[in-house]
Amino acid sequence: MTIDKVVSPASRATEVLGGELTESSLKRYLNGISGVDAVGLEARAADLGSRSIKTTSKAWALDRIISLIDLTTLEGADTPGKVRSLVAKGLTPDAADPTCPRVAAICVYGDMVPAAVEALGASHGLDEVSGGINVAAVATAFPSGRASLAVKLADTADAVAAGADEIDMVIDRGAFLSGRYGQVFDEIVAVKEACRRADGSYAHLKVILETGELNTYDNVRRASWLSILAGGDFIKTSTGKVAPAATLPVTLLMLEVVRDWNRLTGEKIGVKPAGGIRTSKDAIKYLVAVAETAGEEWLQPHLFRFGASSLLNDVLLQRQKLATGHYSGADYVTID
């Protein structure tokens, strides 16, 4: 996946801020963004979560969820074998049902990118091949991000060189929480530049806010704006290594930001909740939130992803139930 137009984040931000891009102008802008009332946000999320999705809508939703999954393994114990197995699962989620859609991407650590690319073979590339799958790599000293900028950039460039289509970077939460918004901005800009391939195209950049560490919804909203201003293609909730990871209210809040950004600039930014979404029922609530907040057009892999691993099998069980009319069991779906 590549970005067609290349707009310098700094010039875009300057335009949005309506003036010079400095640490203090950035701070003023972000602090001027409307606050969030936590109770109201959570009530709205709960309301969206109470939609009743049945029959044909549910069937559509289940298939759509699969096609939005970044099937993920991010363990110290990962091996090329494990990654190959994951790729096979991503390509053929339900061995008994060839109509089952494929996932959007395989998400791995940087050193596993070659294994993923190799395992995908001709099926590599969401945009390049029909039924293709992307390879996403977490980078920038994931999950903590505590490394020098040079290391983070090398981490990123390395994954891109190995064939990663998407980079999931983490922001420097320390810098953000201590108010050094400019530093966070510059780092995202630099990582984005490190996503540049030899041919001038860019790997897709997802910016992980690690909302569990930002702690307040106001921070999440500011960090979302900051990440988008700095050129992120996606904003992503969490690494999955910090609790709480993705929640419906946090995701709703980020969807509100991308909706507002779209209203402001006409650009469409993606959202990726990651970590903690394990059931079809939960995932459907996210689809509802996307459709009723950003709009239905966001329900496509270029604009919405689930970062998940166990979610896929639950969706498959639900799919089987819909197809057969009977409840299925864990032995009827494969362990990746």
């Binding site: 939609r51 049945k54 044909t56 809508s57 549910k58 759509r64």
Partner: peptide, 10 residues
């Protein structure tokens, strides 16, 4: 189809 139409859930 439009997902937003939601199938009836009486």
């Amino acid at each position: 189809m439009s997902f937003l139409e939601y199938a009836p859930a009486p």
